[in-house]
Each structure stands twice: as structure tokens, then as C-alpha cells.
Design a protein around this nucleic acid. Structure first.
Lengths: 344, 344
DNA sequence: TTTTAATCCGCAATCGATTGCCGACATTTA
DNA sequence: TAAATGTCGGCAATCGATTGCGGATTAAAA
């Protein structure tokens, strides 16, 4: 709070009795300024503890070197990892991050988008909130000349850059694995079907069953079981069926899978011998439950880096070759653990 | 990418054939403008899809309505929770967050600080990196008239606003609890002692021993065991002592405690009967290990909210009463779980 | 009807950095 | 020696929004 007034290029100019434009050029390392004066300016700038006012600079240059990120919750493992990845890649390029949480609410998501547009961010990175239905606010981003990149939870119909997981394939692989382990009645806990990722995971599940010539049993497919509690409730319901499942694929999240595991334990049902369990996301805890939970790794940090790098590539490429793929799909990896290992 | 050029107040002014200043006033809901024209302006602004250029506004007003946050890693539970808390409180006040990671490196921390100063953030919130030794960069923040708030890992000698946990007290409570459970030889895994929080936790440990008239055994105090791996190594060493401990307080983190638990399990040592374990942080996984781990909850989201609100209070209070406490200490809560429950 | 006050609105400066353009001077080439 | 080229520095406009001040119009008070 000492010098409320910060030193500007004018202060430096005045002190050295030169024009502010020269100071600006020197600080930007332009070659339109004599080497000697440049050194002098830099020295004086350091002495006066000069800090460039990025606001002014950005205003003039019409860019902000800032990327806005909107996620449902910052403190969910998957998202915080993606953000960490974005941050790492952006930092190297001298870009800053503005982070917003949509709290899974479209209404807040819209506000976040507007804030970021006002902030003149160069790029908005978003993973949709669960109740996101129409996408006018995203169209608005594009209309305002801001690069839009969607990741993970994407609106398919919008033609933007996207970084996604191959959910369908991963899901199919997981279910196939369970079938190979001898499970016959595999239940599916599905997430809100307005989100593409959950539709894809369901498709993967159905594909696997078809491929192995297994029947699709509607009573084993439970909607909207994507939190630990909902997963637990669904499990109670499933295990009390006349013909209960012998495996549960919690396609929504590991939290849901954890709910499954807890209910099974409480009911004295043995995992994996009597009930197989597979989650999604490879949350840290899946490794340390007993038994440990089979799950799918989404390479979240890598995903974040990919998002950022995609933006930077697109930036370099402007008006040039335009050969960059608009959609990058990252292949997730099935992590087989005890909760589904019945044989071998 | 449609209209590269966004509408400004001048566009609105021109269209309505009035002065830009009136537009500005209308948009700021000033009462120095006729109600009818105000309505007209607002309507036109909406029609033209006007978005305020926050950069220009902030430049003029000399503030940015932005809070910069620097943490070691975004994707560590504690920090992402604190950030979530800060975001929630800031959002309500119309403030944005710029997030940086120091990666536990002082060098990067300094760069982050400079970036944020350049960005003219109104406030910088920081939790120090582990190798943070001198604090000139923090002094620099203050000298630039930016409000500095430290949380959790703070530099004690700097007179700034601080939000901390009462580590000493929590630590003492945890160790006392273990003593009451009948543990006689309680080991301590300590963190890097240049960070105050770890010194405080050690002090709490020592206090508890003293209070209960128990000897302090140097061979049971292990330095720098603050990751899962280091915790595991330390445990191997401890359990191979001629007179091994019957309890381990992983004062650094739950990850460290997890390392302890894993080694104990691998060595066939029963927890809690043969070895008590207590962690720190109340990470989600501590609840689901078997046995579940006794730990200390730091109320991280609440901590974040407190940080943000502290800033806003200070803002309101400028030049006024100055009665706000400079240091807010949040009392953590001991969460007793199976890993230390030997009696009762 | 005249004075006073209130209400609106516009002019122009300002925030700090950047940049196109011009001119002064020095250096090189014809 | 004259012309052409290059180097360096300054002037002034610009980015978009805000705001102090003053002027004009209208309403209220005397």
C-alpha cells in the first residue's frame, strides 16, 4: 500500500527525457530503438520497479492472453486435473487462466460465459453442466469471435474444437471384460442422458452385450445413478430384484461405484465373486478400497494439456493450412482391479 | 468468428444519435440519465448484443475486480477445495479468479506473482510453495498496493491478512487422543520445517507428549516424510527399529498416512491393535480405507470462503474502523476413525 | 413573471500502452 | 557532390469506458 501510484512508461520517459513510445519499444524489445538507449531504459525500468499494465496493453492490442475455463466444479478430481493440465501448457505460452464454476447449473454457466466474454478472453474452454440443454450461450461465444473449445461433456451439434474421450469404446471394453470374467447379468448405472458422454457409455454397454450375444435386460438399466447416494440406492433396488445382477457397471463415476461397493458390503455380498463392480474415471480412491475397483482412466491431466495445445495450434494456424483436426479423441484405458477379477 | 469487431458504447451512441457518455451512464444505471433514454439505450444494447469491455472499464477505473490465487497444485484436494470456496464467495461479489500453480517451486511462484501484478489484480491470495525461503516477492505485492492474503502455508514474519488453521492445537488433540487410546510410543512423520504449518504440528505433538508426561523419543521423529512414498519408507524404517512405535502420526498429510497403512498391511501388522495411525487433511479416501483412517479436517472450502470474505470486508472497511482481525484461525476438527480406535 | 433548483446531456480529458507515420540525421552508393 | 537508403526518435491517434465540469432545458419556488 505504499505507492498507490505505480510507475508507467511515462514516468520512465520523463525521467530520461525521451518519448514514451521509445520506452514502449524498448520494453518490447523492438529493434527500432538504439541498443544503448534500450539498455538505459531497461535499467531505469528495473530501478523504478516498473510493471507493465497488462490491462492497458491488452486493450490496445485487442487480445488478453487469457483463457477462460468453465467447469461444473473445480474441486472434482477429474476437472481439477484437467485444469492443472491446461494451466501447465498455458503457462508456458504466457497465457493466464480465469476459472469459473457452473455448479452444474445452466443458469450459472450462462453468467460465466458472459463474464468471460466481457473479460475479452481469447478462448473459452468448457465442459457442460449437467442440465445444459440449449446452447445459445455457446453460439454467442463464437459470434463474439472467441475461440471455443469443448471437452469431455460436449454439445455435439456445435461445430467447435473438441477434446473428448472415446467413451463408447472404453465402455464397450469394460463390459466385454466383465463378460469374459463370466458375469452373466450385468447391470448399468447410467447418467443423465442429455449429456452425450453418458449416451455414449450406454451405447458401449449395449454394443458389448450384442457382440457377445447377450440379452439386454431393461430392468438392469438404471437411470440417473451418478452420485454415490444414487448409486447406492440403485444397488439396493437391483440386488432386491427376483433375479438380481451379478455385476454392476457404474458408467457414471467411481463415486457411484463406491456406493455400489458399500451397499454390497453392507448386504454381505462378496465382491467380486458374487458381484462384479466397475466404475469410471480412475479416481484415486478406487485403488485403495477393498477390494480395489476396476475403472477407466481418462488421462485427465493429459486431456487438459491437449485442450490448451489445441488452442495454440489453432492460433498458429490461423488462415494457413487448416489441417488441424477439429475433434481430438483420447482413448481411455481400462484399469482392471480386484472388483471384477473372478478368473485368472 | 463472425463479427470480429464487437459493438462498443460508441456504436450504440451513434445509432441513437446521443453521446457515448450517456450510454455509459445508462449501462451503469446512473441516475444522471433520463429513465426513457436509459430504457432505449438498454434495449439497443441488447439488440446489438453489446458486451462491456471489462479491460477498458478496469483500466479507466483503476481496478480489475479480479483476485489472483497462487497454490502449489490446483489438483490437490485441499487446494482445489479452497479455490472452490474462494470462487463461490467471489462470484457473488462479481469478482473473477485468476489461478496459478507454483508447482512447489519458489522460482515459479515469483513468476506467478509478477504476472498477477501485471494483470493489476486487486488481491493476491497465496499458499506458499514448500521451498519458499525469502519473501521479497510478497513484499513486492504489498509495495504495489495489492492486498495480499496468505492462507494455510504462511510467512509468519510478513504482516498481511492471514487465514490459517490452528495446527498446533489440532495436532496436540490428535496425539492426546492416541495417548488416551493407550498408545505408548507414538512416532511423528514431519514435513519440511521451513514451513510454519509443519513446525506447528510438531510443536503440538511435543506438547501432547509433555502434557501426558511421556518421553520424547528422537528416533521416532522422522523428517520430511510428506508424500505417500516417503511415508512408506519412513514406516519401514520405524517398524524395523529394535523398539518400534505402536502408533504413527503422519502430521504431513493423509497420503503419508496411507503409505503407513500400506506398509503395515504388507508387513502383517494389525491396525489399530498393533499400530495406530493418524493422518492430516481428511482426504476423501481416509473414510474408505480399511481400516478407515483417523485424521484432521481442515474445512478447506470454508477456508476459501473465509479468505474471500476477509478481502471483501477489508475492502469495505478501508480507512474506516480497522477493527478486522488480521489473522483468522480456523479450528480444525479431529475425525476419529478405526485406525486409532483401540478402546471403547 | 422572475429566480432558483433540479434534471439531462454532451464535451473532452483520462487510464497506460502501442504503433503508423513523419522527420532528422547518418551512412552508403552512384 | 548528390541521391538513395537506413537508423533512431517523437508526435499523435488509438483501444473502450468513465467522469468532472459546464451548458441547456424544464420544473418548482418566490
Amino acid at each position: 500500500m505504499k505507492n498507490r501510484k505505480r510507475t508507467t512508461i511515462y514516468d520512465i520517459a520523463e525521467k530520461l527525457n525521451i518519448a514514451a513510445s521509445s520506452v514502449s519499444r524498448a520494453l518490447n524489445n523492438s529493434n527500432h530503438v538504439n541498443e544503448a538507449t534500450k539498455k538505459l531504459i531497461l535499467k531505469t525500468a528495473a530501478e523504478l520497479n516498473y510493471k507493465r499494465n497488462t490491462l492497458a496493453s491488452n486493450l490496445r492490442k485487442g487480445q488478453s492472453k487469457t483463457i477462460g475455463v468453465i467447469v461444473p466444479f473445480i474441486n472434482q478430481n477429474f476437472f481439477s486435473n484437467v485444469i492443472a493440465g491446461i494451466e501447465e501448457a498455458s503457462y508456458q505460452k504466457g497465457y493466464n487462466l480465469i476459472i469459473c464454476q457452473s455448479n452444474e447449473l445452466q443458469s450459472k454457466e450462462i453468467k460465466c460465459v458472459n463474464t468471460l466474454i466481457n473479460q475479452h478472453v481469447d478462448c473459452i474452454v468448457i465442459s457442460l453442466s449437467v442440465d445444459s440443454n440449449d446452447h445459445r450461450h455457446l453460439q454467442n461465444v463464437i459470434d463474439n469471435g472467441i475461440q471455443l473449445i469443448q471437452f469431455d461433456r460436449v454439445a455435439d451439434e456445435l461445430e467447435t474444437l473438441k477434446v473428448i474421450n472415446d467413451n463408447e469404446q472404453a465402455s464397450e471394453e469394460a463390459v466385454s471384460h466383465m463378460i469374459e470374467q463370466g458375469y452373466k447379468r450385468i447391470a448399468l448405472l447410467e447418467g443423465p442422458q442429455n449429456l452425450q458422454i453418458f449416451r455414449q457409455r450406454k451405447t458401449g454397454y449395449l454394443n458389448a452385450l450384442k457382440k457377445h450375444g447377450m440379452p439386454i435386460l431393461d430392468e438392469l438399466i438404471i437411470e440417473n445413478a451418478w452420485t454415490k447416494e444414487l448409486g447406492a440406492n440403485a444397488t439396493r433396488k437391483l440386488l432386491n430384484l427376483p433375479k438380481p445382477p451379478d455385476a454392476i457397471f457404474a458408467s457414471t463415476s467411481d463415486f457411484s461405484a463406491l456406493g455400489v461397493l458399500e451397499v454390497a458390503s453392507a448386504m454381505g455380498i462378496k465382491v467380486p465373486s458374487e458381484l462384479g463392480i466397475c466404475g469410471y474415471s480412475n479416481e484415486a480412491f478406487t485403488e485403495i478400497t477393498s477390494p480395489s475397483i476396476t475403472t477407466i482412466d481418462q488421462f485427465s491431466v493429459y486431456m487438459g494439456k491437449t485442450v490448451a495445445n489445441l488452442y495454440f495450434q489453432e492460433l498458429d494456424n490461423k488462415e494457413e493450412t487448416e489441417v488441424i483436426p477439429k475433434i481430438i479423441s483420447i482413448k481411455p484405458k481400462l484399469i482392471v482391479r480386484s472388483s471384477t477379477k473372478r478368473i485368472g
